[in-house]
């Protein structure tokens, strides 16, 4: 990472710590904000967060590795999470899953080489009466069929650009 980028990240983390508080209880909110902005929490970011909150970096890593929505490895700008739990399973999630893999050319647990899409399984999304359900970042899709998968991915591609994360967020608000 370039020094200037490191400096920028460091400043950003300091601002987050100032906002959420420099206490252990603020750790998860700080990490969540970083996850949204950078689609992962890098080793360097964990080190800075640890300094800000006053704990050992290994403790930060312990937290990042525990939660499914925090990633220490780079993940896609668009995180697609398909519910794998029983009601969505009964509603036909297997075919949606296969089609997601076909359209993106990756398997579950992988990220496309261009860094746009990650494909993951999710535990129950609370949309059990309208399955199969999936999340794209913070947007929820219900009653998804295999033939709709293509359109969902296309929607994401359209908003992808220099400000993809913000654009995606604005479109969902």
């Amino acid at each position: 990472m370039l020094v200037s980028q490191q400096q920028k990240l460091q400043d950003e983390i300091r601002a987050l710590a100032a906002r959420h508080g420099r206490t252990r209880a603020a750790l998860v909110p700080i990490l969540q904000d970083l996850q949204v902005r950078y689609a992962s929490v890098s080793d360097f970011a964990m080190q800075v967060v640890a300094d800000e909150v006053g704990i050992h970096p290994a403790e930060v890593y312990g937290v990042v590795s525990f939660y499914a929505f925090l990633h220490s490895q780079p993940s896609g700008r668009f995180q697609i999470r398909l519910c794998q739990t029983i009601s969505c399973d009964l509603a036909g999630k297997a075919r949606v899953a296969r089609q997601l893999e076909n359209e993106l050319g990756i398997r579950f647990g992988e990220t496309t080489p261009d860094g746009r899409f990650s494909l993951e399984w999710a535990s129950c999304l609370g949309m059990c009466d309208q399955g199969p359900a999936l999340l794209v970042n913070d947007r929820v899709y219900t009653r998804v069929s295999a033939e709709q998968v293509h359109r969902i991915i296309d929607d994401c591609r359209k908003v992808f650009g220099a400000h993809a994360a913000q654009a995606a967020h604005a479109a969902h608000a």
Binding site: T23, R24, A25, A26, L27, V28, L31, Q32, V53, G62, V63, F66, Y67, A68, F69, L70, A122, S123, C124
Partner: peptide
């Protein structure tokens, strides 16, 4: 942050305090 176990009240509190759930 995506952890079922955090519905257990003491795990939830751990999570609020910035720990693993």
């Amino acid at each position: 942050a995506g952890a079922y176990v955090c519905g257990e009240e003491t795990a939830l509190i751990e999570s609020l305090e910035g720990h693993r759930g």
